[in-house]
Design a protein around this nucleic acid. Structure first.
Lengths: 219, 219
DNA sequence: GAAAAAAGTTGAACAGCTTCATTTTTATAG
DNA sequence: CTATAAAAATGAAGCTGTTCAACTTTTTTC
């Protein structure tokens, strides 16, 4: 019998819940700041615990492993990238190559805004090595959504009559995504490689393909 | 002044060198056996040292890190795969899709002969995370050679008149390799995925592309 | 063939991620 | 308000990869 209590408790979550949310937020904020500043490997769990004003054990209460914390920060980043891609998919520029490269380059250009190459390397390594972890699955889901955006772009171009209607947009989208993703991996593996070089490589691979999938009637 | 000594020592390498080669071989053999049997992660350096009858410190005298040992075993495997691909490149079967898929499938079919999915995951994660390590570079080199084989196949097909001569074989080879590699990564990430499913996915992506790059004059 | 030098081996010490028994805090019941 | 239960925080201990100063073996020198 706690009728009144329940009602009066409704406006605000319980103390325990609020503290939990607050701690998780503090840990994640600490992780974002420290990973960016010092690099993923150099930061110890103890550092994060200290910055978040919790104990080491508590960090593990919220994240299964150190890698999970990194993937949580990467997730936030990729969500942004996905948002920025949305308008490009909805209303792509003219020309198949132009549209596809615009989307790909928008991914690339935002990729280093918050994450260093080292963080990307660690995150990608983790997503491969520990795909069964909760956040590992979350990373896979992000990949799926990125690939889905590429496919959606192709479908938009098909609807517009710019891409041959008889082609399998999903398979092509996958192929394009696999290519842009793999080239991005090579990019973050090579500290000396610039964004311009990455763009050039991918453009060279995508342009001929774009020409082939475009309808012949275009100007 | 060591004229005679040098001559008499010539037939057989010095004791030290023989012991070194022997120890390295024992460590690598132990690694291959134990990694396959118990998995990469579960095997401790101490286990390898014991099996190879050396100390832990000595293992580190031959390999910079545990990951280097894994990559050394993977290297042997991929060398074999490359050898098996050679005849396919030199004399590919008829049809662009058939030729390309034959090569890709020969890679896939031999990939699990010696290495488990877990070992592949660990190796790939390492090659991404530690690209600057000696063996990390060696892994990258293997990737390059695999991509080169795909490119060589396309060039053979161009010479044969099966693939349009105006296409950039290297860029296309890269694109195809990126795709087969990325799909292989997805394959090893998913313990439940079968080789047949992998083949089907990749065939779906490669067939349309093959149709487009083929010369129109073919029967 | 003995002494010195060079090369290589060894395992204990160290570092950082992770676990878990204990303690503390919050919620519920009477 | 006190007692009980549930939930969460804590940090010391454990585990494993890695390092390094001391030691052993092999090679070179005279």
């Amino acid at each position: 019998m706690k009728l009144f209590i329940e009602v009066s408790a409704a406006p605000m979550a319980g103390l325990r819940e609020r503290q939990k949310a607050d701690r998780e937020k503090r840990i994640l904020q600490a992780a974002v700041a420290r990973f960016r500043a010092d690099g993923y490997r150099a930061v110890r769990i103890e550092d994060l615990a200290e910055a978040a004003e919790v104990s080491v054990g508590t960090v593990y209460n919220y994240y299964r492993t150190k890698g999970d914390i990194l993937i949580a920060t990467v997730t936030m980043e990729v969500e942004e990238v996905l948002d920025e891609g949305e308008p490009l998919v909805a209303d792509p520029p003219d020309g198949v190559a132009e549209a596809v490269l615009a989307l790909i380059f928008s991914y690339y250009d935002h990729s280093l805004e918050y994450l260093s190459k080292e963080m990307w390397r660690s995150a990608m390594a983790l997503s491969i090595e520990a795909p069964e972890t909760p956040n590992g699955r979350r990373y896979l889901e992000l990949d799926r959504r990125l690939a889905g955006q590429v496919t959606a772009l192709l479908e938009t171009l098909q609807a517009r009559g710019a891409v041959r209607a008889d082609l399998d947009a999903e398979a092509l989208g996958q192929l394009l995504f696999n290519n842009l993703n793999m080239e991005f991996i090579e990019f973050v593996k090579d500290e000396g490689m610039t964004l311009a070089q990455l763009r050039a490589r991918v453009a060279r691979q995508v342009r001929p393909l774009a020409r082939m999938i475009a309808t012949k009637e275009e100007p």
